[in-house]
Amino acid sequence: MEFFQNIDWMLVLRCFIVGGFICVIGQILIDKTKLTPAKILVVFVTTGVILGGLGLYKYLIDFAGSGATVPLTGFGANLAKGAIEEVQKSGLLGAFVGGVKSASGGIAAAIFFGYIASLIAKPKIKKQ
């Protein structure tokens, strides 16, 4: 119970609202522009890299926590942050190493779980 007492519930509320709002932007893009899911994801990840590169996205993360990091913009910002930090440590080489390094957990997890899922699951029709 000590765990729940330590949670900043105002941060959780901000996380819910900001995360939800970022998704609403995506929904408007889907309904108004006929962009395919792949293109929507590309728009979000690239926006995240740009905002991260400009150093703006970290303010949103400070404000909303996972509400900013869980959407794909956060994935993009993380790529940019990794690249910049690695450049500070090891120069130009860091531009190539840093991004993927910081996102490696997510990428490896998605690939690994995708492979496992293909072993156990069978494709099935959408019922509606």
């Binding site: 590309v42 990840v45 690239t46 995240g48 890299v49 740009i50 991260g52 590169g53 994935f75 993009g76 790529l79 940019a80 990794g82 690249a83 910049i84 690695e86 450049v87 500070q88 120069g91 130009l92 860091g94 531009a95 190539f96 840093g98 991004g99 993927v100 996102a103």
Partner: peptide, 14 residues
């Protein structure tokens, strides 16, 4: 696009 953009950001940063 994500990784390419991050490399560009890194190069600019360097």
């Amino acid at each position: 696009f994500g990784i390419s953009a991050s490399v560009i950001v890194g190069i600019i940063a360097s």
